[in-house]
Design a binder for these strands. Structure first.
Length: 575
DNA sequence: GACGGCTCCAAA
DNA sequence: AACTTTTGGAGCCGTC
């Protein structure tokens, strides 16, 4: 079965070994499986306490570990210093196969909603109800058939897909991502609480006792209240603030910072400063530090596949994917170590160029700066126009400069623009769109379809029709963006999976955190923590991994995904 | 007091 | 600078 042999990084594995893992009343079952999910040998049951050793032993055969949920099993293995090379995360794979247009006719996709779909009902990443080493204390509620039957159903769905290699690559990348997430959560991001504290003190003043406002925030508040002649104003309340601004003669309908910036009044400066400081305190202040950093590490909780488009989400209060630039200076490499920070420049527009196979746009990106290439191609006058018009193409801008420039882009890059326009039209009709590797968009809600029917029905008022058009366009913007954002997420997963493998292969068999290892990921950017004398090798590995990701996804198309790479002592120095 | 909806802002 | 996409979280505010 060719599809089964698809692996990230293209390592051929002729004899694909799968080992399913699930709990039984007597412990943990390890069951070898054939390619199609049928049993291959007898089941072996080990006590919970012996599980990690059993995995470490079997790992020498480089199997693919088949389990329901990666964090559930892998967190305990990592605690025991057992790393695995590859896995099949059944829950993540199920979510993809259930929705993908490539497997729409499969038994898995047409079956009624089941427990494997719980990710669709609960937020993904809901903590497993029990962890590996509590096996004796909880009922063994995995039904044996469940894990094995689900795996067989998935193999069947993949084999029956029109293009098994494509969906197979996606599932391999998704599962590899789950391993990376668990490993980064385990390793943690080096974090200097003392430096974080210095940053906070510089902006806010010394840490106040319990619920007090820090001195500098309080001083700003007093200036603001004085300028607005509102001695009890709470600027955290938008309605209070609007009222106070109105009394001061300032006409605004919202209290967004960018709206306020347009105003000229002595209260505006302290108000904007207050908002900035209050945000720092609330989002990444001392409370954040206390609850998220321990033993010099920030342990973010990633949720692979947590976003509909396939991007990762994060949860648990750490806000890993919204880490403000303001505090990145607290991310400091260990003594003798460095960070290699790499981000994929202009990833999404390059993905669009590659997806559509628009040779002109691919060519525009070949020299390194896609936007400069678009200017050179004559579509627009300035680099800024190139950027804003590309964003408009990918997000579906209708007004402003972005919307105005779109027609010029269409003239020069008809295939690229047609691609996103088609995705938008499909969404407006309530249809599904699919990424490069096979992740499909969800269907709109029943309310959405009902709204469309109402809007174009016999008794539709002009208001009904207008609302229906608005909702259709809105869903079209979503599907337009879905194919680009989702395919970019796939590229990033392939990149990271390749890099993880390369770092391991050059580690000499040392433990993850004793050799160069991934410590942070943010959509199109990775951070590797490595010994200072390994910087050059890591940089080369990061670049090679990106080239391989491009080849995996787009084959021979001469599209490039250049990286911006910086070697730094602290994350604040990057960019 | 809990909860849902809202506004605002951080990231890509 | 937004416009236009996807998120998570804090705080406010009305309702239960």
């Amino acid at each position: 079965m060719r599809a089964a042999d698809t692996t990230v990084g293209g390592i051929p594995h002729n004899e694909m070994v799968f080992v399913a893992v699930f709990s039984l009343p007597g412990g943990v079952a390890l069951q070898r499986l054939a390619d199609d999910g049928t049993l291959d040998g007898t089941v072996r049951v080990v006590a919970g306490a012996d599980f990690a050793a059993a995995v470490a032993d079997l790992e020498r055969q480089h199997p693919r570990w088949v389990w329901d949920d990666t964090p559930r099993w892998y967190a305990g293995l990592l605690e025991a210093h057992v790393r695995v090379e590859r896995c099949v995360d059944l829950r993540l794979s199920h979510a993809i196969l259930r929705n993908s247009s490539l497997t729409a006719g499969s038994a898995l996709a047409t079956a009624p909603v089941c427990s494997w779909d719980r990710g669709a009902l609960e937020p993904p990443g809901t903590p497993p109800e029990h962890t590996l080493f509590d096996l004796d204390e909880v009922p063994a509620d995995d039904s044996t058939e469940d894990t094995l039957a689900e795996f067989a159903a998935q193999r069947d769905a993949i084999a029956g897909a029109g293009d098994p290699a494509r969906i197979g690559l996606l599932l391999a990348a998704e599962s590899a991502g789950a391993l990376v997430a668990a490993e980064m959560m385990h390793s943690g991001l080096p974090w200097r609480a003392d430096i974080h504290n210095e940053i906070l003190e510089r902006h806010l003043g010394p840490r106040p006792v319990s619920g007090q406002r820090p001195a500098l925030l309080d001083a700003t508040l007093r200036r603001l209240r004085a300028e607005l002649e509102a001695p009890t104003l709470n600027p955290d309340s938008p309605s209070e603030l609007l009222k106070a601004l109105d009394i001061a003669g300032l006409m605004v309908t919202s209290t967004k910072s960018w709206e306020l910036k347009k105003l000229k009044h002595p209260a505006i400066q302290p108000l904007l400063e207050y908002k900035k400081l209050a945000r720092l305190l609330a989002a990444n202040g001392w409370h954040w530090l206390d609850s998220n950093v321990r033993d010099g590490r920030f342990h973010p909780e990633y949720v692979p596949g947590g976003v509909v488009t396939g991007r990762w989400a994060s949860t648990g209060g750490g806000g890993a994917l919204q880490l403000p630039k303001q505090i990145r200076g607290a991310v400091v490499a260990d003594a003798g170590w460095k960070f290699v920070v790499a981000d994929a420049s202009q990833l999404e527009p390059r993905i669009l160029a590659a997806l559509s196979g628009d040779r002109g746009m691919v060519e525009a990106g070949s020299a390194g700066d896609l936007y400069a290439g678009i200017v050179a191609g004559g579509a627009v006058e300035t680099r800024d126009q190139a950027k804003v018009s590309m964003l408009g193409a990918m997000y579906g801008a209708t007004s402003g400069e972005s919307g105005r420039l779109m027609p010029q882009l269409t003239k020069t890059y008809p295939r690229a623009i047609a691609m996103v326009e088609q995705a938008a039209r499909a969404g407006e009709r309530g249809e599904v769109v699919t990424t490069r590797l096979g992740r499909s968009s969800p269907r709109p809600s029943a309310e959405w379809y009902a709204g469309q029917a109402d809007g174009y029905g016999e008794n539709a008022t002009e208001a009904d029709a207008s609302r229906a058009r608005g909702q259709a366009r809105s869903w079209g913007r979503f599907t337009r963006n879905f194919i680009v954002q989702g395919s970019a997420a796939e590229w990033a997963l392939c990149w990271m999976a390749n890099l993880r493998r390369a770092l391991h292969e050059s580690s000499g068999g040392t433990w993850i955190t004793d050799s160069p290892h991934l410590v942070f990921f943010m959509h199109d950017e990775v951070v590797v923590h490595c010994q200072a004398d390994r910087v050059d090798a890591v940089e080369a590995a990061v670049r090679t991994a990106a080239e391989e990701a491009g080849r995996l996804m787009f084959g021979a198309l001469p599209v490039t995904f250049p990286l911006t790479v910086a070697t730094v002592d602290d994350y604040g120095q990057a960019k």
